[in-house]
C-alpha cells in the first residue's frame, strides 16, 4: 500500500502552556490518498484541533504529523479549508472571493495576472459543479446561507488542494439544503482527485459521505475506533432510510454516548 497522505502519530497537543488544557493525547490517524474520512465524537473532543494540526496551523508538542511525505512544521498550502461560517469577504464578489486563495498560494500568485482568464474559467466551472452557475458576479451577502456555503466549497477547492478539510460545513443549514450539499460533496469527491477529511456532529452525514468514520474520545481526544463504511458508491439519498445504514448510525451513536459518559 502506498504511503498515506496524512499520517498523525502519537500526537499530544496542549493549549496555553504546560499547565493548559490537553486537547488531544496519543492521537493516531492515517488518511490515504483519495480517501474520504469523517471524524465524529462528543463535543470538545479536539476535532477542530485535529484539523489545525493537519493543516499546520498548530504544531504539536510531541508526536509527528506528516502530510504528503514531509513533516508539518508550518502551514501546508496543499490544503483547502471550509468552516461552518462561510467567512466570505463582503467587499468582494463571489467570484473574487473564490479566487482569493490564488492570490495567496505561492504556486499561483505569480501566475494569476497573466492567466487571469484561465483561472476565472476554472472558478466558473467550479461554480457550475456546485450549482451556482451565473452567481459569480453577485456579492456573497446577496446569496442565501446554503449558496454561500457552496461558494465556500469552491473557494476551498480553487487551488486544487490535495486535501480538503471540512469543519462542520453544513452545521448551520436546514435539513434539505444540507442533504443537497451532501450530494454536492459526494459528486466533488467522485469527480475530482481529492482527499477529504470531514469533521462533523452529524452521524448520518458521516456515514453517508465517508469511506471511513473515525470516532474520537472525550477530551483529551484520541481515536477510539475506526469503521469502514461498507456501502457501495455512488450512494443515493435513499440509502439514509435503509436498515443497514441506520444500524451503523446507531452503533456510532452508542460509541459516542459511551465516550461521553466516560468523560
Amino acid at each position: 500500500m502506498a504511503t498515506p497522505l496524512v499520517s498523525i502519530e502519537n500526537v499530544d497537543m496542549r493549549y496555553g502552556g504546560p499547565e493548559g488544557t490537553l486537547a488531544v493525547s496519543g492521537l493516531d490517524l492515517k488518511i490515504n490518498r483519495g480517501e474520504f474520512v469523517a471524524v465524529v465524537g462528543p463535543s470538545g473532543c479536539g476535532k477542530s484541533t485535529l484539523m489545525k494540526l493537519t493543516t499546520g496551523l498548530h504544531i504539536p508538542q510531541s508526536g509527528t504529523v506528516i502530510v504528503a511525505n514531509s513533516q508539518v512544521t508550518k502551514p501546508v498550502s496543499i490544503v483547502g479549508m471550509a468552516f461552518q461560517n462561510p467567512t466570505m469577504l463582503p467587499w468582494r464578489t463571489t467570484l473574487e472571493n473564490i479566487l482569493l486563495p490564488l492570490e495567496i498560494v505561492e504556486r499561483h500568485r505569480h501566475r494569476l495576472r497573466a492567466h487571469k482568464a484561465d483561472y476565472i474559467a476554472k472558478a466558473e466551472a467550479l461554480l457550475e459543479t456546485v450549482g451556482l452557475k451565473g452567481f459569480g458576479e453577485k456579492f456573497p451577502w446577496q446569496l442565501s446561507g446554503g449558496m454561500q456555503q457552496r461558494a465556500n466549497l469552491c473557494r476551498a477547492l480553487i487551488h486544487e488542494p490535495e486535501l480538503l478539510m471540512l469543519d462542520e460545513p453544513f452545521g448551520a443549514l436546514d435539513a434539505f439544503t444540507r442533504e443537497e450539499l451532501w450530494c454536492v460533496i459526494r459528486d466533488l469527491h467522485a469527480s475530482q482527485d481529492v482527499t477529504i477529511a470531514l469533521v462533523t456532529h452529524d452521524l448520518r452525514e458521516s456515514v453517508f459521505l465517508a469511506d471511513k468514520v473515525v470516532v474520537m474520545s472525550a477530551r483529551p481526544g484520541r481515536i477510539i475506533s475506526e469503521h469502514v463504511v461498507p456501502f457501495e458508491r455512488p450512494r443515493q439519498l435513499d440509502l439514509l432510510y435503509e436498515p443497514a445504514f441506520n444500524e451503523m448510525v446507531q452503533k456510532l451513536h452508542g460509541e459516542i454516548a459511551t465516550a461521553r459518559a466516560a468523560a
Partner: peptide, 20 residues
Amino acid sequence: ETEDVLRALGAKKLDIMLKV
C-alpha cells in the same frame, strides 16, 4: 476562521492585512 483559511494557504501577516 478567515485568518485560519488564509494562514493554512501559507499567507503571511502582510497578505492577511492587505487582503482582509
